[in-house]
Amino acid sequence: MLLEIKDLYAEIDGKEILNGINLSVKSGELHVIMGPNGSGKTTLAKAIMGLSGVKIRKGDILVDGKSILELRTDERAKLGLFLQYQTPVEIEGVSFLSFLNNAKSALGGSDIKELMQSVKEGIKELAMSEEVIKRPVNLGFSGGEKKKSEILQMLVLKPKIAILDEPDSGLDVDAVRIIGKAISKSVSNGMGCIVITHYTRILSSLEFKNGTVHILSRGKIVESGGKELAEKIEKEGYASFVKE
């Protein structure tokens, strides 16, 4: 699968947020997007999934050469796109397992035994409690449980390209390591991945063979490079990348 973002301009409530983004993500590739607060990272993630509030003003988003701008969010998910929410939504009364079953069915898999197997494997891999699947979606989850539950969904639903919006924020070092390992495993199994983050610590948990770090500033990718770019930011901050 190939996801292409071409010269993308987008606004929220009339305010220009994305100013000509260009990015290509293939299956099995890892792209890390870093940038100061308000640079447009989450808006980019929302634009890819077609969430409300983001208005595309110019440019295109393509999957395997076809524009997806006219597709609804569920249709984009059916193509194989997945968004890990920075703040997952709580849904009262819907058990996590029932939600996963509905999602898996919608994406074309309906074998409950297979689902249970992959849920159990995911729970083990992420060192989660099995109780989580009986609880309503994200309701009463701790910050860490919410992040892990999003990654669990990624492991179970097996998207072709995942956009992970701050999978590491609010997690302790052990949890970051566990999540990093799970993401790396999915990438090595062929999943394309965009990781949006503020910190370099998740990078040390990610296998970075096919990795690229992009710096987003004022709605535009201003520099791309290897892991060393992230290390530079860690030492010097974003000042040298922020263009007037």
Binding site: R72, A77, F82, V89, G93, V94, F99, A103
Partner: peptide
């Protein structure tokens, strides 16, 4: 909640099925 509908849709569930899931949840 449109936020909840979109969250479910981002997992491939259609809009009407998302609404139904939320209502049945209640």
């Amino acid at each position: 909640s449109t936020e909840a509908i979109e969250y479910l849709m981002s997992r491939g569930i259609s809009k009407s099925d998302s609404k139904k899931l939320i209502l049945m949840g209640m």
